[in-house]
Design a protein around this nucleic acid. Structure first.
Lengths: 343, 343
DNA sequence: TTGTACGCGTTATCAA
DNA sequence: TTGATAACGCGTACAA
C-alpha cells in the first residue's frame, strides 16, 4: 500500500510535486528549468508545492534525459599547492555563477593516476575539462580526443595542445630570471628544485640555457631532490648548494617561493647577507614573498585570472563561440625586490 | 540507417560493447561492476571489447538505476586558505582510494551561498556530506536532515551537531594561548583578526575570557577588520593595534598565521624586537611559522588527519558500522617558539 | 500554456 | 553463469 506521507522514506520525485500541486510532471519540470514558459498562477502554485515538500531534483535523471550534465571536470596535480588553488578559485568563481558544478580531482603529479582520474571525470559526462599541463599518458590523450569534450590545458604553453591552452612559458621565465640576476652583477648562479613537474623542468632548462649563452657552466650549481617542495626542503637544498659550490655561489634561483623562503630563512640563520652576499630569487610570487624581510624577488603570474579565463574559454566554446583564440599566453612578470637588488 | 562505425559520433553504450563482444548488456555491466560473477572466458572477451572501443560507462544512467552515486559532497568556506585545503587533501586521499568522487563547493564564508551550494550537492544524490562548521541556515539544516544523508561537520566542535562532528575547541585554544602568553610574563595582550568566521569568533571569546579571568581588560586591545586575512592586512592591523594601545601592547595574539606573519614582518621593519619587546602568537601553524626568524608560536592542528578521519566516518557509516563515535575531538597543540619565549 | 508518450543508459529482479 | 524485462526520474518532441 502506497501512502503519501510527507516525511516518507521514499525519495521525492517530480510526480510527487505534480500531484501535490495538481498539475502534470512536465509542468513542474518547466517551473524549475524554464519558468518563463509557465503561467504566473501555476508557477506560484507549483513553487509552493516544491518548497513545502522540500523537493530537490535528481540530477542524474535530468542529465540522463537531457544529456547535459552541467559538470566541468578539473584535474590538478596537488591540492596543497597554492599555485593550483589560486587557479581553482578562478575556475570555481566563473563556473559557479554560470551554473556549472566542478568535479575536481587530484593527480598527485602522476600521469598514471591522472589517466585513472580522467576516466572518472569522463564517466561523469562533463561538458568541459580543465587539466594541468600536457604530460598525460598516450591512452589519456586518446580518451580525451575520442570524448570530443572541450579541453583546456592550463599552467603552461604547450607545443601541441589537445584543444585549448592557456599558460605561459616557464622556459622563458627561467631564462629571464637568470638574465636579471646577471644584470644585477651576480656571477655564480645556482639553482635548487624539489620534485620537478614539467614546468619546473622548463624553468631549469631556461636557467641552463641562459648560463650557457653567457658562457657559464652550471656544473655543481644545480641541486635537486625528489621530495616535494617545502620551506624545510628549501633550507636543506640551499645548504647542499653551498656545499657543492664550496660556498662560492652568489645567487640562487629557487624553482618556487617555498624553496626560496627556506633558502632565505636558512641564510638568515647562517648570517649570510641577502642580497649583499647572496641573491635569492623565487617563482610564483606568493604573498609572503612580498612581505618577508628582505622582500623576495619572484616571478608573478595572474593565476586567478588564468582560472577565470580557462573557465571562460570552456563556456564560450559551449555557447558556440568558435572564433575565440585557442591558445592564450598569460605572460608573467619578474618582481624585482630586495633579495636580488640594492647590492 | 544505423551504422556501427567505430569512431561514430554517437556515444558508446553498454549495448555497443555487448554487440561487439557478442554478449548481452547485463553481462558487460557485470564485467565492470561484479567481475567475479562472470566466467573467466567471457570476462576477457568483454574486457577486450571495452578496451578496443574505449568504452566509458555513463555514470548518470548507472546512478539513476542503482541509486548509488559514489559521490561525496564537500563544502568549504574558501579555496585559498591552506587550512581547508589541508583537510581536503585528507578527504580526497581517502575518498579516492575508496572509489568515491568528491564534489567540492566553495561557500565564500556565506551561509546563504552555502545553502545554495548544498542544494547543488544534494541534487547530485551524494552518499555523504562533509561540511564546514555549524552556521548553516535553518533551511539548510532542514534540507540536510530531510535528505538523510550522512553528514560530518568539520573544523570545530559543535554544541548541536546535525549528525557527526569532528574538530576541536577554538574557544579553549584561544584561552590557552593567552594563558601561555601570561605565563611567559606578557601582560598587555592584544588581539587582531580579519574577517571572522565562527571559529575565529570562538578564539576571540577564549581570548577575552582568559583576560577577564586574570582581571584584565581587553578594551582597546582588540583590532579587527571585515577584510579577508592576509599578510598585508596583518601588518596593517598590527599598526592599528599599536596605535589604539599607545604602543603599550607587549604581546599580540593573531587569529591566524597569515596575520601573525604580517605582524612579525611589520615589527621587523619597525625595529621592534620580537620577542624582547613584543610577543607574537599565531594560529594554525602553517609551515612558514616554523621557519621564519624568529620562529612563530602557533596552534597546531592535524588538519590532514582531520580530513582523513572525516572521510572515514562517512565511509564507516555507509558500511553500516553504527557503533563508531559520532563526535571526535582532534585536539590541538600550542607550539611554543621564539616569538613568544626566551624573553 | 499545458500535457502525453517515449527514450536516455544502466542496474535489479527474476527466470533460464 | 547468463539473459530478458522492467524500472530509475526526468526531459524532448510533439500534440492538444
Amino acid at each position: 500500500m502506497k501512502v503519501a506521507k510527507q516525511s516518507s522514506d521514499k525519495k521525492l520525485t517530480l510526480i510527487d510535486v505534480a500531484v501535490a500541486a495538481g498539475v502534470s510532471a512536465i509542468t513542474v519540470s518547466r517551473v524549475i528549468n524554464q519558468p518563463e514558459k509557465v503561467s504566473e498562477a501555476l508557477r506560484q502554485q507549483v513553487q509552493k508545492a516544491i518548497d513545502m515538500l522540500g523537493y530537490i531534483p535528481n540530477q542524474y535523471a535530468s542529465s540522463l534525459a537531457s544529456s547535459k550534465s552541467k559538470v566541468i571536470g578539473v584535474s590538478i596535480p596537488s591540492l596543497s599547492n597554492v599555485v593550483f588553488t589560486d587557479v581553482l578559485r578562478g575556475v570555481y568563481d566563473v563556473m559557479g555563477t554560470a551554473g556549472y558544478k566542478v568535479l575536481l580531482v587530484d593527480t598527485h603529479y602522476s600521469p598514471l593516476e591522472e589517466e585513472k582520474m580522467i576516466r572518472t571525470l569522463l564517466s561523469q559526462s562533463p561538458e568541459g575539462l580543465i587539466i594541468t599541463g600536457g604530460d598525460q599518458t598516450r591512452t589519456c590523450h586518446n580518451l580525451l580526443q575520442k570524448s570530443r569534450v572541450p579541453v583546456v590545458q592550463i599552467m603552461e604553453l604547450l607545443n601541441e595542445p589537445l584543444d585549448m591552452n592557456i599558460g605561459f612559458s616557464h622556459w622563458q621565465a627561467g631564462y629571464d630570471v637568470v638574465t636579471h640576476l646577471m644584470e644585477e652583477g651576480y656571477e655564480r648562479i645556482g639553482f635548487i628544485a624539489a620534485r620537478m613537474d614539467p614546468r619546473a623542468q622548463q624553468r631549469m632548462l631556461g636557467f641552463k640555457k641562459a648560463l650557457e649563452n653567457a658562457g657559464k657552466s652550471w656544473k655543481n650549481f644545480i641541486v635537486t631532490t625528489p621530495e616535494p617542495s617545502s620551506i624545510a626542503v628549501g633550507g636543506e637544498l640551499f645548504k647542499s648548494l653551498l656545499a657543492s659550490t664550496d660556498g662560492t655561489v652568489d645567487a640562487v634561483f629557487c624553482v618556487n617561493d617555498d624553496l626560496a623562503l627556506g633558502a632565505l630563512f636558512e641564510s638568515q640563520r647562517m648570517n649570510i647577507n641577502v642580497p649583499g652576499d647572496l641573491a635569492i630569487c623565487g617563482f610564483n610570487d606568493i604573498e609572503a614573498s612580498r612581505f618577508v624581510n628582505p622582500s623576495l624577488t619572484s616571478v608573478q603570474v595572474n593565476r586567478y585570472e588564468m582560472g577565470v579565463k580557462a573557465a571562460e574559454m570552456i563556456i564560450d566554446r559551449l555557447n558556440g563561440k568558435m572564433d575565440q583564440p585557442k591558445v592564450v599566453d598569460m605572460g608573467y612578470q619578474i618582481k624585482r625586490r630586495q633579495s636580488s637588488t640594492n647590492r
